[in-house]
Simulated assay, not measured.
Amino acid sequence: MLIKKYVRVAEDSKAELVLQLMLKEWQMEKPKLLLSVHGGLQNFTLPPKVKHSFSRGLITAALSTGAWIFTDGVNTGVSKYVGEAVKTFGSHKLRKRNTVGLTSWGLIDNNMELIGRDVFRPYQPVGNPLSKRASLNRFHSHFLLVDDGTLGKYGCQQGLRRNLEKQIQLQRIHPRLNHGVPVLCVVIEGGPALVSTVLDYVSRAPPVPVLIFEGSGRAADLLAFLHKQTANHRHVFDPVMEAWKASHLYSLLLQCMDYRQAVSQPSAKQSQENKL
């Protein structure tokens, strides 16, 4: 596996400098849309219909708009599904230019092999099944490897990812138009921390729209369920949800529903047409 476009950056790196590197040094074309994909880090199984709808829809949207795709960049969980989608449905250009993994440096298996300056590095993960580290997904075109000095821990990249997305939103799609780059958060499966991520997106001013794939499991299904149940009223009468009322997670879920106009799910027609 040959990793060509990657850079190791500090967690407090300025987002505007990172974006400048991507546009000028890596010569990436300015996106007209940013698709930020979030979900489970560990491996999980998607039902075939959900997998096809997500994969085909994601790549169709990326190809038709010239979008960038952001993921965690590892070869597990939702990032692996994005890589498979790029492999199966992506064009040569998409494979080479538009899929960016923002990954914790200390989480990467055998990361010492990636140390160097202005060189191509063959990357071969050790693959120890007992290791807490993860390998990079080879169907991503670029990697931002975020280093906070920790080893084997996930999450230090999230602050830079958030700031970089906001910086991209400030970019003008056309110099004569006063429109920045739109961002769409795409949610597949995921754990409790993902609910906080969704709340961060929808509570921004203006809110970032969130597309949730129901049937993918865990957090995504909880959000999709509440989104349907609160269509006409905020109180949920489901007995399982009643048992959660004292939990912090339930509170976060309901806070997300305060911004439910920013949350959507692929309709049956969209799923059938494989579009986001």
Rank of each mutant, 00 (worst) to 15 (best):
M1A: 15
V7F: 06
L23M: 13
M28L: 15
P31F: 00
L34V: 06
L35Y: 02
G39W: 07
K49R: 12
H52Y: 02
S53L: 05
R56Y: 06
L58K: 06
G66D: 09
W68N: 10
N75G: 08
G77H: 06
Y81S: 06
V82I: 04
K87L: 05
F89L: 07
S91H: 11
H92T: 07
K93R: 15
R95T: 07
L102M: 14
N110A: 13
V119L: 13
R121C: 10
V126P: 13
S135R: 11
L136Q: 12
F139Y: 14
S141L: 09
F143N: 08
D147M: 05
I168D: 12
Q171D: 03
R172E: 14
R172D: 10
H174V: 00
R176V: 02
L177V: 05
P182W: 00
P182I: 01
C185E: 10
A193C: 05
A193D: 14
L194M: 10
D200Q: 10
V202T: 04
V202W: 01
S203F: 01
P207Y: 02
G217L: 04
A224T: 02
K228L: 05
Q229F: 00
A231F: 00
A231C: 02
A243W: 00
W244V: 03
K245T: 07
Q261D: 14
N274C: 13
